[in-house]
Design a protein around this nucleic acid. Structure first.
Lengths: 148, 148
DNA sequence: CACCATAGTCCAAATTCCGAACGGAGTGTG
DNA sequence: CACACTCCGTTCGGAATTTGGACTATGGTG
């Protein structure tokens, strides 16, 4: 299988990975959720070549994860903002960050702390069942193929 | 920044991505959560070169995500199993799959259905606050750097 | 007009990947 | 016993992909 064939698989994981499963794309997503929106800021923060950033941003725009919007005229300058589809990646980013917090944070603790605005508490993300609301672990899940 | 420097960043996201943020590594993780454990099965399912599989499995073992265990002697054959650290990636995989289900599933619906053993229902994963238990969306979170 | 900021584009060079071959340890077949 | 076969890798050369760094473009500033 080649990278270009990932999107055509009958598997949601590979279809997602075809879009976001790239180191720099994931880094760009992190920055987007931190509020970074401009080409130059991505470059400064990531320290990678402009062509990589341009290519990744273009893919994300093409996929509808980002919207490219003018934030001024004279000269026209654009910024990249998460669409709803992009915001829906929040659980993915939170899950990855939390795994890093749990397994790679030094003694000083996690570099970034998340506060839930609604309840005012610092929190960690918990994956729960949409039906009963209980926390769901790896061993609590049974999988089956859809009918047909 | 180079790939090799990602692990050294003071950011949980980049440290995680240094380990799992690679297309084939993510695909291998998917298969691991589906119960695949043997070298040859990864090769058959992914259809990529043996060297890539060998290298990714080795990295995951070195990082403590997988355990390489003999499942028979005469001849000794090994299988790769998720450690607790590996199982802790379950929310990451679920979040990615769910995003794919939501945005790339065809009319037939998601290819794979998840059932929560405890309540017996088919479910989707919901990210909630560890403190109040409410669902948390992208806009419900405030971030700040840890003290110091 | 010289110079700066933003936002790309382009190509040679570096990296990664594929395919194929090879090795090794044991098993089964004639 | 010779030979093929299985499972699990490793190695190697050439092909494909990715990357860094220079170049382009547009308009504002002094």
């Amino acid at each position: 299988m080649k990278w270009s064939e990932l999107a055509a698989q009958d598997c949601s994981m590979s279809r997602s990975i075809a879009v976001i499963g790239d180191r720099w794309t994931l880094m760009i997503l992190r920055d987007l959720f931190l509020g970074v929106r401009r080409f130059e800021d991505f470059e400064r923060r990531l320290g990678i070549s402009r062509s990589v950033i341009a290519e990744r941003l273009k893919l994300l725009v093409d996929e509808g994860v980002l919207r490219r919007e003018a934030y001024q005229d004279h000269p026209v300058r654009h910024e990249y903002r998460l669409t709803d589809k992009g915001l829906a990646l929040h659980p993915v980013v939170m899950a990855i960050v939390h795994w890093g917090d749990a397994h790679y944070a030094g003694e000083a603790g996690p570099p970034l702390i998340h506060r839930h605005k609604a309840c005012g508490c610092d929190f960690t993300p918990v994956l729960t069942c949409s039906e009963c609301g209980e926390a769901v672990g790896a061993r609590d899940v049974e999988m089956r193929a859809r009918a047909g």
